[in-house]
Design a protein around this nucleic acid. Structure first.
Lengths: 331, 331
DNA sequence: AATAAAAATGCACACGTGAAAAATGTTTGT
DNA sequence: ACAAACATTTTTCACGTGTGCATTTTTATT
């Protein structure tokens, strides 16, 4: 492996000069710099990041930590997240990936090890981890899950506006009786999506019918159960908004079991736009959660925080996209 | 941050002794070692891996590279892969994750940067990368895709046996007219799965009907198209094996469109057991690809290769699991 | 008790890099 | 012509760790 000292010998200068030339230090004369850069390229020089890390007290590593409650939604998004990050991340940083639940002791989460940390969070069980990171003073961005703390940089989708957009569309399609299968109680995202649902109804002066609010927990089974109870009502809704696609799939199965045809007898809207939303029968109309955008913006912000630790933090919202497919009929 | 020199000062020994004690060097007297270990624990010492890397010429990093043709299957498996790896991987190694297609130039793929590399391969387009890694002399294990080269450690599922098991089951359920929708031409996995299909038919002395071999390319659309052509036959099959779940989903949609009910009018078997196989309508009977097991075994082998670069390489097969759900009827 | 052998520890250096301080060369001002 | 200011480069050291070899301490043998 060749080092700056090797280059120095060939160029007839000291290794310090080489170091400066290669790092864009203005102290070096232009022609010297050019000569050194040429030699470095010819000799195929690649810096030793261990040595760099040691002296610069930087790790050139950023960590991505994801929570995976069960095999839940975050799983299928992970590839998009990683791709999004790599699009933005400087070439000479490397990205290490960990499951939060796989961490034995937080002791190894040190500023020395990570120049920055991204948390792709699903659950408030991640808070212990998040506050450990914050307390260690490691630049931190939390993705995907809405946090209350204004001291932590937080990038999330604008769920509320996204749901409202979808509902507004449903109303233009002639629907009037709307039900919702809600997300897990206590999750910020559940509240936000429910709010978007209500925003639209209220804006259109439609009634909020208590029987049309069904509980769910983001699991497929809960969508199935909730749909069964909705269908058992004397006057069932004409459209059901499910707070995520998993529950929408459960709800679809319930309809299938009861002999209800979608969308002719009942319309359905989901949230997330998971990979298989387009392959359900019929294809699911849903609100796309912009995972790649969230990751890119989050990474950008993380880089800012790394350069300027006192940069302002707070919530940042990314727009959702409404995906019209086949599960909503016009009536 | 505290260093071995700090510990040395407190313990009243040289930093050399501390280094040896903490690394299990037998030159150190037991009581000295105990004392040093105690002090190190009390002072909350954590080794500086940059310095370690520099002097040991190791990176303490292993790289996971995955190919993602489109948003394909590998995507949803990634979490399982990462978890599988972490189960086996030593705590003081970190795992960096990259998309192969995101690599600009192979120059940065150096022994200096990676102590070992795992490739989660989907396509033979990865070969250029794989051979670069091999040529650099970096310990390497290729997962998921069957390679011919005996010089490369390769861990894959035993697709052929897995498909045969599924087909044997279908035969016990009374089926006699079997069709297959094949995988992408030229892929080793396509051939293997087709072989398993034929193995079973031949073992049971059932005829191989040329019209029942339909071409596919692992994409959802190709499953749809293939199923349409099968349904158009004068005597359609009673069961269709799809070389992966994506195509099975496409095939299901085709049946739905033609008014064919699964499984009463036609049975279906898939391969992979993707996350949503259990949420199709009806739930898809399929062959589970043991991604976590492949990852664990692959990582174990990689560690062996890292310790003993001359260790024997070759193919290693992991057993699949047959998942009986609702898409196969007994006739 | 003397001496050899063995066990335990310390010294000095190396790894590749970057930075402060020092040295050298170059230009400008009077 | 000489000093002062400036531009460029080199010298020296530091970062935290591991290792060959020298040195000291302990143990065993006579």
């Amino acid at each position: 492996m060749i080092t700056i000292k090797d280059i120095a010998r060939v160029a007839g200068v000291s290794h310090t000069t080489v170091s400066r030339a290669l790092n864009g230090n203005p102290l070096i004369k232009k022609e010297t710099r050019d000569k050194i850069e040429k030699i470095a390229a010819e000799m195929n020089y690649i810096p030793n990041y261990s040595a760099k890390s040691l002296v610069m007290k930087k790790s050139y590593t950023i960590g991505l930590f994801f929570s995976s409650i069960d095999q839940g939604t975050s799983a299928s998004f992970l590839v998009d997240v990683i791709k999004g990050i790599h699009l933005v991340l400087d070439e000479n940083y490397s990205l290490t990936v960990h499951g939060i639940d796989g961490i034995q002791h937080f002791d190894a989460i040190l500023p020395q090890r990570f120049d920055g940390i991204l948390v792709m969070s699903q659950s408030d069980a991640d808070n212990a981890f998040i506050y450990h990171v914050k307390q260690m003073g490691i630049p931190l961005v939390v993705l995907n899950r809405h946090l209350e703390d204004p001291g932590i940089m937080n990038v999330v989708a604008n769920d509320r506006a996204g749901v409202k957009e979808a509902m507004d569309y449903a109303i233009t399609q002639g629907h009037r009786r709307f039900a919702i299968i809600e997300g897990k109680a206590g999750f910020k995202s559940s509240t936000e999506r429910k709010q978007g649902f209500m925003d639209s109804l209220i804006a259109h002066r439609l009634p909020l019918v208590p029987e049309y609010f069904a509980a769910g927990d983001y699991g497929v089974e809960s969508g199935y159960a909730a749909m069964c109870s909705l269908l058992a009502l004397p006057e069932p809704p004409s459209l059901v908004f499910c707070a995520n696609d998993d529950m929408a799939i459960g709800a679809m199965n319930a309809c299938y079991a009861k002999g209800i045809t979608i969308p002719s007898q009942l319309s359905l809207i989901g949230f997330d736009d998971i990979l298989f939303a387009r392959y359900t029968n019929p294809a699911l109309t849903t609100v796309h959660k912009p995972v790649a955008d969230i990751s890119k913006l989050g990474t950008t912000k993380l880089i800012e925080l790394m350069q300027e630790p006192s940069a302002v933090t707070g919530q940042l919202f990314v727009k959702t996209a409404f995906m019209v497919r086949q599960s909503v009929a016009s009536v």
